[in-house]
Simulated assay, not measured.
Amino acid sequence: MGTISKGILGGFSGKVGTVIGGSWKGIEYMRSLATSVSNPNSPAQLDQRARFGTMIKFLKPLTAFLRIGFKNQAVRMSAFNAAMSYNFSNAITGAYPVYEIDYTQVLVSQGSLPQALNPTAVSTTAGEIDYSWEDNSSDADAMADDKSVLVVYNPVKKRVVTLEGGNTRTGGSQVITVPASFSGDEVQCYISFQNANGSVISNSQFVKGLVVV
């Protein structure tokens, strides 16, 4: 049975007939009851579940960072779901039943701030990755004090290392430290920029895959 909490014109919670009502993040919603599926293992559904599972496994270690990277997209949905929506549509490659992540197409952040100019990364010292970029602080909407944001994803160990509030656009470089256990593993490197007060971020860029010294 549904309960009306704000009068007849307000939202309701619970079930009324074939409709379910509730509230999420202060947003009243209604949805219909799920219909039964005659064949839950149809080729299309198996394919969809395989793609979904591949992306969930990739994004799960990034959950905490995505609250920063996709916070500007978290409108009527969580930051994780916003990241899932974009990457599910753009960053999966392969064919059923074997799907993989296309790391070059992944976004770990999404926003309107200008991206890094010609970023690159190298690992020449044990446990360190050196990022560098060119100064584009004169571009529209870019600021000299925008801070670099770095993400290193290790597919072998399913681990992520992040750095927020790094060197500025004009600084041109930033070192990120990774665990000693990453030595010999190929990792995927991403960079974004965030404004000084942290309210706006750029789309992330795939910098490169590299083997950690």
Rank of each mutant, 00 (worst) to 15 (best):
I4V: 09
G7T: 10
G11T: 06
G11C: 10
S13R: 13
K15I: 15
T18I: 05
G21P: 13
K25G: 06
I27P: 10
I27L: 08
E28I: 03
E28Q: 11
R31H: 13
S32I: 02
L33I: 06
T35H: 15
V37H: 06
S38D: 09
N41E: 11
S42N: 10
S42Q: 06
L46A: 11
L46W: 02
D47T: 14
R49D: 05
A50Q: 05
R51T: 01
M55G: 04
M55V: 13
L59Y: 08
K60E: 11
A64F: 12
L66A: 00
I68Q: 02
G69C: 08
G69N: 06
F70E: 03
F70A: 05
F70N: 06
K71R: 10
V75T: 10
V75Q: 03
A79M: 01
A79S: 14
N81T: 10
A82E: 02
A83P: 13
M84E: 04
M84K: 09
Y86K: 03
N87S: 08
F88W: 08
A91P: 04
T93K: 15
P97Q: 14
V98H: 12
Y99M: 09
Y103E: 07
T104R: 07
Q105C: 09
L107K: 02
S112P: 09
S112V: 14
L113P: 14
L117G: 08
L117Y: 02
P119N: 05
A121L: 10
S123I: 01
E128T: 08
Y131S: 01
W133A: 00
E134F: 06
N136G: 02
N136Y: 12
D141N: 15
A142K: 03
A144F: 15
D145W: 13
D145F: 13
K147Y: 04
S148V: 04
S148I: 02
V151R: 00
N154V: 02
P155I: 12
V156N: 10
K157R: 14
K157L: 15
K157P: 15
L163D: 03
G165D: 03
N167M: 07
G171N: 15
G172E: 14
Q174D: 14
T177N: 05
A180H: 08
F182D: 01
D185N: 10
E186D: 14
S192G: 07
Q194K: 10
A196S: 14
N197E: 06
N197C: 10
N197S: 12
S202E: 04
N203W: 03
S204A: 09
K208E: 00
V213R: 04
